[in-house]
Design a protein around this nucleic acid. Sequence first.
DNA 1: GAGTGGTCTAGACCACTCA
DNA 2: GAGTGGTCTAGACCACTCA
Lengths: 244, 244
Amino acid sequence: MNNTNSSPSFHPLYQQIKILITQSLISGEWRPGEAIPSEIELASRFNVSQGTVRKAISELADENLLIRHQGKGTFVASHTEERRQLHFVRITSDKGGVIYPEGKLLECRRGKADSAIAKLLEINTGASLVVIKRLLNVSARPLLLEEIRLAAAMFKGLNADVINRHECKMYSMFESEFGIRITQVVEQIKAVAPNSEAVKLLKLNTGAPLLCIERVAYTYGDKPVEWRKSLCNSKEHYYMNKIV
Amino acid sequence: MNNTNSSPSFHPLYQQIKILITQSLISGEWRPGEAIPSEIELASRFNVSQGTVRKAISELADENLLIRHQGKGTFVASHTEERRQLHFVRITSDKGGVIYPEGKLLECRRGKADSAIAKLLEINTGASLVVIKRLLNVSARPLLLEEIRLAAAMFKGLNADVINRHECKMYSMFESEFGIRITQVVEQIKAVAPNSEAVKLLKLNTGAPLLCIERVAYTYGDKPVEWRKSLCNSKEHYYMNKIV
DNA sequence: GAGTGGTCTAGACCACTCA
DNA sequence: GAGTGGTCTAGACCACTCA
């Protein structure tokens, strides 16, 4: 590959390599957790220098799509990995320290997408959905009540058994059962008064306000995959965010 | 500079260059908005190759401490810059689109640090504080009620006049009046019931829950500078967060 | 010892800015 | 045209892993 472009629409080689690697991730040529070819192999495959491949891989590693391990190789990032299990969980205990929520499935049924959900998931209004409700406990006390909506077409065969088999761990289940890796999430956070269902299931004193976190989760190529609404009792926990 | 280290405690050259550049930022050798020397000049100053300086600068640019402009040079990042004015503001309107809050100063007085604040700001318990209260309006409607606490020792001469002269824009005021640039913030978010002051100043219906955002803001070298508590009416706005 | 990614260099050439 | 950062290469050597 070479770069004979002159000024208008100049695209660096390493950007093109990034796109090629991302396409291999989308196509499933390399699956989450697997090693990708070495930098030298990729360089000869794409006909560029190792340095150019390095730059492409570095940016993909910065975006958490790949993980490099000196001496071992470069791997497709996976939600199953130890340190990424709680990557998208921003709820922290007031006492400090990580929380390890236990999920309990309340419901798993089919539904239809209204226009709002359809727009967020980039599917047609009326398309079939999987609707999931779950409760998350921390130290045996209810902390989060969640409703999750997925495009049924992408999750064929998903049911309560599958979810329970994976102990309600959704994103690692997405990967191993459906080959879908969540790469980023966007959240909108509000304070709300609890509804009666939340009061009951989260065992609240009436009047206690909740955090309401609406999330859209994306896979490779910024494709939306999941919509989620979480109600969180923030009496003894908070949502943590660091802005650099 | 050369790197004669063998295995134990190996520190790459570019990391050492990063530290040297950061020290120049802390010392004020280059102030926010100013250009730093060119890569070639820095390379000869530090006795390394241009590539090594580039790697150091790239990481500092990723951390938003420097900004590179092709053809012009590399500059110390500044809060005053157009696109960074709202960098730490995560509140968004339900209708979408950026908000442009107008600040109104309610109070600026001296206080003493209790042990909790002292620990967060890494100062002594009982040390003198500047305590500021302000209200932020969007489209002439009150949205945020904030209390800010600063170590008085770092902000000598700060008073209501100074704040008003800067139209209540705190972080650009920190830079131009005190040479303190905020580089990162950490926030803890909860849902709370409003107190009577918030009900009055934010013109709430009683019972409407609020987002409570507690922030610690840091300058170069992860030094804490500001503690802030914001109460936000999330009826028509939300806190936006993207996790990659 | 072979293979991986990580650092560092020197040098060529390009895109962009400004006078 | 001079000066800046941006891309790309080729090559040397290092740190780390694994057999």
